[in-house]
């Protein structure tokens, strides 16, 4: 139910909300409007007013094979990454939720990677998974270049996805554990009375009840994979989009196109497509997945 709003002044709420609204207007709504504007106009190279060019910027973007490459890279990144994040988070949450002695210790550490910035984690992994050292060196000893992210785009993509998974598994873990803990204990006990062992209980009782949380995480993580700050940060600091455009995710390409290529109109058109894509994803997820989700 709506809260009974208590105070009646009309100007006080405006005054209270104003600081944040002004900031949002300046740094959110105006820029978003500008993105839309730029996507449909083109600024002549040597000054002068921007001209309306309809969908020309979109056509140009869509006819660029590198653009399509970035779409494919982003799709892989934003499906594989979230899948593993949720899988790992769920497995660990189910384990910790059994509340065996010592599980508090593990829980404490599982959350820590999430505190690290994507680029900083990237720096560590550049060392950990570099082809010349440690684990990877032993693999490459079998046959040269079995693992070489500096040379192969697919290896580099795997590397950035691994970093993403490493960082974000703790996040899904937090939410899934919170979700599990809100499942009434009595349910598990009832299932135990029905003779279900721990595994059966996990599959039959706990996971179905987690459906809303899983659904929420799916939407959040995929959005994060497509446009999250870490997605950009990891790619920028680890591979710079390479080798050979192999890790050029859509956000990276947009920023690169704008600030290296100085092609604001093209970047804006790509932004609009990305925004549209996210909305479609969110819509599909709400429409088709939410139906099979059991809310309380």
């Amino acid at each position: 139910m709506e809260k009974r709003a208590v105070f009646k002044s009309w100007w006080l709420p405006v005054l209270f909300a104003l600081p944040q609204l002004v900031l949002i207007l300046l740094f959110f709504y105006w820029p978003v409007a500008a993105v839309v504007n730029w996507a449909f106009t083109l600024e002549p190279p040597f000054g002068g007013a921007a001209e309306f060019v309809g969908f020309a910027n979109f056509k140009e973007a869509l006819s660029d094979p590198f653009y399509w490459n970035s779409v494919v890279v982003s799709l892989i990144f934003a499906t594989v990454g979230p899948f593993f994040c949720i899988f790992i988070g769920l497995t660990l949450a189910l384990a910790v939720d059994r509340q065996l002695p010592g599980s508090g210790f593990f829980r404490f550490f599982y959350i820590l990677p999430f505190a690290i910035a994507g680029p900083a984690a990237g720096m560590a992994f550049r060392f950990i998974l570099s082809p010349e050292r440690g684990l990877a060196a032993s693999i490459n000893a079998l046959s040269p270049d079995l693992w070489n992210p500096a040379k192969y785009g697919s290896h580099a993509l795997a590397l950035v996805i691994i970093i993403f998974i490493w960082k974000w598994s703790g996040y899904t873990f937090i939410f899934l554990l919170a979700g599990l803990q809100s499942v009434p204990r009595a349910l598990g006990e009832a299932a135990a009375m029905d003779g279900a062992g721990p595994f059966r209980r996990a599959i039959d009782v706990q996971v179905p009840l987690l459906a809303p949380t899983l659904f929420f995480l799916l939407v959040t993580m995929m959005t994060e994979g497509f446009v999250g700050a870490d997605t950009f940060g990891i790619v920028h600091s680890v591979t710079g989009g390479g080798p050979n455009h192999g890790t050029e995710v859509m956000v990276y390409r947009i920023v690169d196109e704008a600030f290296q290529g100085l092609n604001y109109s093209g970047a804006s058109a790509q932004s609009i497509i990305l925004i549209g894509l996210i909305m479609v994803f969110t819509f599909i997820q709400f429409r088709f997945i939410e139906k099979r989700v059991h809310y309380k």
């Binding site: 820029p31 993105v35 700050a229 909305m279």
Partner: peptide, 18 residues
């Protein structure tokens, strides 16, 4: 609504405002 669109997709005009 601001939850929907992160900085990365509106970064150029945000930079212009700044």
């Amino acid at each position: 609504i601001t939850l929907m669109l992160p900085l990365e997709v509106r970064v150029v005009p945000t930079y212009a405002v700044a």
